[in-house]
Amino acid sequence: MTNDESLAARAAWLSYIGGYTQGEIARRLDVSSAKAHRLIGQAHKAGLVRVFIEGAPGECLRFEEEIARRFSLQSCVVAPDIDDDDARGSRFRFAGVGAAAAKRLYAVLEGGNGLTIGLGKGRSLAAMVQNFPRIERPDLKFVSVSGSLTRNLSANPYDIVHNMVERTGGEGYFLPVPYIAASTRERELLIAQKSVADVMELARRADVYVIGVGAVGRDPAIKAHIQQVGMVSDDEWRDLQDKNAVGDIMGCFIDADGLRVDSAINRMTLGLHLEDLKGRRVIAVVGGKDKGQAVLAALRTGAVTDLIIDEGTAASILKIADGEGA
């Protein structure tokens, strides 16, 4: 451990256990107030601090009970909306859901040895990893449930297997193919590779799945994450909109009823299918704006058993469902 790492750990103890203010920590460690602040931030980033909030506002609890009951879920966790100010950036929109998901995954991992966890992708799951503490669990395996690359074969910035391996000391297994192939022919060639087939078989045997849900929005001025990183083209996106797709799970694009839409892109997805998840424990972690319709559709697939969402999405789900008479 370097001197700065040691100071960061000491600053974390003084702050969270000792209750010291930032100024008091600075004086205690003989550093500037600005450095004390940086040390506490460094401790967070290094996973030295685990902060799980045990309580929840009453409104969130009521949402949890209603959504779990209505959609027959094993559990539903609704994180309070922390900040809806776009000027602060997207990181804050996923903070609450990320913290709630980290707490739930930590509890899942504590409950068993030698677990294999199937992991999806996205900003919500990335926020979960950011809030996950460092633990020593070399018995764990983390495996991608969908292609780990973009179409130009660059790494998906929100593929979280590597980061979970860093946090736990477990083993990581990537699916070394694009999230969505460029053609059905390319998909057939890639899926036939032994290395790909082996990882997919491991993913099918996972004990628990933690996945995200993407939204297919209608606003042409707002590009979804998979558009921004080049996973789908603008033409393909317009086709999905024309086919009334509202969301995607592991690259499977679905309509408001949770049914796979008849689009060419659904025949080019590389990874597990929704059918592979049926009857398994599937924790969907969803944060961000305007996800209500997509999450509702995901619930209607019957694949999701546990749901972690933010307060705004919870309200949106119930409002849409009530409006449809669901």
Rank of each mutant, 00 (worst) to 15 (best):
residue 3 N to S: 14
residue 4 D to L: 15
residue 10 R to Y: 01
residue 12 A to K: 01
residue 13 W to C: 11
residue 19 G to K: 05
residue 22 Q to W: 09
residue 25 I to H: 05
residue 26 A to K: 02
residue 28 R to M: 07
residue 28 R to K: 12
residue 29 L to Q: 07
residue 31 V to L: 11
residue 33 S to E: 14
residue 37 H to G: 09
residue 38 R to C: 06
residue 40 I to Y: 03
residue 41 G to R: 15
residue 47 G to F: 00
residue 59 E to P: 04
residue 63 F to D: 02
residue 65 E to Q: 11
residue 73 L to A: 04
residue 79 A to C: 05
residue 84 D to G: 14
residue 87 A to T: 07
residue 88 R to W: 09
residue 95 A to Q: 13
residue 95 A to R: 13
residue 104 R to I: 00
residue 104 R to K: 08
residue 110 E to I: 03
residue 116 T to W: 02
residue 116 T to Y: 14
residue 116 T to I: 15
residue 137 R to F: 01
residue 141 K to M: 12
residue 141 K to V: 12
residue 143 V to R: 13
residue 145 V to A: 09
residue 145 V to G: 12
residue 147 G to A: 08
residue 148 S to W: 13
residue 148 S to C: 07
residue 155 A to S: 10
residue 156 N to H: 12
residue 165 V to F: 08
residue 166 E to M: 14
residue 167 R to S: 04
residue 168 T to I: 08
residue 174 F to W: 14
residue 184 T to Q: 15
residue 188 E to S: 14
residue 217 G to R: 01
residue 220 P to M: 10
residue 221 A to V: 02
residue 226 I to Y: 13
residue 227 Q to D: 05
residue 229 V to C: 01
residue 229 V to W: 03
residue 233 S to P: 00
residue 238 R to P: 00
residue 241 Q to T: 04
residue 249 I to C: 11
residue 254 I to H: 06
residue 258 G to Q: 07
residue 265 I to A: 03
residue 281 R to A: 10
residue 285 V to P: 01
residue 285 V to K: 07
residue 300 R to N: 09
residue 303 A to F: 04
residue 307 L to R: 04
residue 308 I to K: 08
residue 316 S to P: 02
residue 316 S to H: 10
residue 316 S to R: 13
residue 317 I to D: 06
residue 319 K to W: 03
residue 326 A to V: 14
